[in-house]
């Protein structure tokens, strides 16, 4: 029941976001369309002899690879980005650090494996929906082997012994593969950068996540919190390095996220 309510809220939020944004979206898209057109500026190109032919080639490539994403919710997204940023530095990182200090690495790796094993359904179905039936079969094989030989998935002998790599697929990628564009950029509380498409994938993914079916709901969310902390304990320093390298972390995050997801969809 709670889950459904949650799903409805997310869907509603996305829809209302789309409505309020529609006016701005057009303007934003025009903005984007107008951007990658270096030839349209004859005054600049004639006075500039700094770009030689090879640079020109690379310049063209970069323009082609340019990330196109509309972000009509930018003011809200920026606020959400800062909330998440503070959440990370004030809550998530200290928690992950404290946890890392007491839980030895093999334990943390085991827990990580356990959750990876538990979320097999999303990957299995996403593989099938994308026509990657071999990869889906591999996921099933991994699940069977790790649940038994790997003792409920705490070990990953499927990878270590059989050399079966997990498939990094989710529903957002599946929708992308089907031709659904990113849609509007979103920064979700706690989840971070996303898009309407990936948000939908995330909601669908929750239906396929066994943890969500644990009753009562408090326990279910508690388990997820534990999972997030465990995962974060492996990634301390990544966000910090990213932020230090950025000039405008919000824009950098948006751009990097879209590049990353586009690549994933392509694969």
């Amino acid at each position: 029941m709670r889950l459904q309510a949650w799903a409805i809220i997310v869907v509603l939020a996305v829809i209302t976001a789309g409505c309020t944004a529609s006016k701005k979206t057009a303007a934003d898209q025009q903005h984007i369309l107008a951007a990658p057109n270096p030839i349209a500026m004859p005054s600049e190109s004639s006075e500039d002899d700094e770009f030689d032919l090879i640079d020109e080639d690379l310049e063209k490539q970069l323009e082609e690879q340019k990330v196109k994403i509309s972000d009509p919710l930018k003011p809200v997204n920026r606020i959400m980005y800062h909330v998440n940023d503070k959440l990370y530095f004030w809550v998530l990182r200290p928690t992950a650090r404290a946890y890392k200090a007491v839980a030895p690495k093999p334990v943390r790796t085991g827990i990580r494996n356990f959750f990876n094993n538990l979320t097999t359904p999303v990957r299995f179905i996403s593989c099938h929906l994308q026509g990657k039936h071999k990869a889906a079969g591999r996921e099933l094989h991994r699940f069977a082997y790790n649940t038994t030989v790997g003792v409920l998935g705490f070990g990953d002998p499927a990878k270590d012994k059989l050399g079966l790599e997990p498939a990094d697929e989710d529903l957002g990628q599946t929708l992308g593969k089907w031709g659904l564009g990113n849609g509007v950029y979103l920064v979700l509380p706690l989840f971070g950068p996303s898009t309407v498409r990936d948000g939908l994938g995330l909601v669908g993914g929750q239906f396929l996540n066994p943890v969500r079916y644990v009753k009562p709901a408090e326990t279910s969310y508690g388990i997820s919190a534990g999972q997030i902390t465990n995962e974060n304990s492996f990634r301390i320093g990544e966000y910090e390095a990213f932020k230090d390298a950025a000039i405008d972390p919000y824009i950098a995050m948006r751009n990097a996220y879209i590049q990353y997801r586009n690549k994933k969809v392509q694969e």
Binding site: L62, Q65, I247, A252, Q259
Partner: peptide, 8 residues
């Protein structure tokens, strides 16, 4: 990295 900086 070039594209990420370019966007910023």
């Amino acid at each position: 990295i070039l594209l990420t900086y370019r966007s910023q």
